[in-house]
């Protein structure tokens, strides 16, 4: 049995170093760090006082409606996918041959917390109808899949910090298995919030 060759045709990233793949790469080669002090008032009592937050707000690259309906983790996924798609030359492909595998380790936790506040303070009818698509772990994959009209499958293998790497491996498998010709794959996360930071610190996973 011959193994089908798979190639990477486009890259995208929005990171603590920069808002694009190319600028991230330049910053990496320059040896820059994306870690910075957490000086917001909400961080004052946290056991950790720094984080590698995004260099650029994802909303800078999204239309207002898209930004409004997506969780922050999904905004990052869409911004990176848009860049990768453009970098690949905006492929003209049958949607039935295009798949998406985009993962997150935690996903829409800030939406979950914000909507829990809405529930407690204003009641059940004030919980946003967008809550479920914003908090589900396959939300980033779904957002990218809808944007690119991918119909060969939209998946989100979740495996903690390895989620994005596993997504790329699954994309490779989908092409080799003949289920898709192009797969947009990767990972996105947005957990710089007091609760996840306190929780990771409590398990002594932060320095």
């Amino acid at each position: 049995m011959t193994v089908r060759d798979v190639v990477v045709t486009g890259l995208g990233a929005t990171t603590p170093l920069a808002g694009t793949m190319s600028a991230t790469w330049v910053a990496l080669l320059d040896g820059l760090s994306g870690a910075r002090p957490l000086d917001a008032p909400w961080a004052a009592d946290l056991p950790v006082q720094f984080a590698a937050s995004a260099a650029e707000e994802p909303t800078a690259r999204l239309d207002a409606l898209t930004a409004r309906t997506l969780d922050r983790s999904q905004q990052f996924a869409v911004v990176a996918a848009d860049e990768a798609w453009a970098d690949a030359g905006t492929p003209d492909i049958d949607p039935e041959r295009l798949a998406v595998v985009v993962s997150t380790g935690i996903g829409g936790i800030t939406t979950l917390l914000e909507q829990y506040d809405a529930l407690r303070e204003r009641g059940a009818r004030r919980v946003s109808p967008h809550t479920v698509p914003r908090i589900m772990p396959n939300g980033p994959a779904a957002a990218v899949g809808l944007r690119l009209n991918a119909r060969a499958g939209v998946h989100a293998p979740v495996s903690a910090c390895a989620s994005g790497a596993e997504a790329i491996a699954q994309g490779l498998d989908l092409i080799r298995a003949g289920r898709a010709d192009v797969v947009v794959c990767g990972g996105a996360e947005a957990v710089i919030h007091p609760l996840p930071l306190a929780a990771f610190a409590a398990m002594r996973a932060l320095s």
Binding site: T69, R125, P129, H130
Partner: peptide
């Protein structure tokens, strides 16, 4: 449909 619910609320 989800945004319609938001508009109604």
């Amino acid at each position: 449909s989800l945004s319609m619910v938001e508009i109604a609320t």
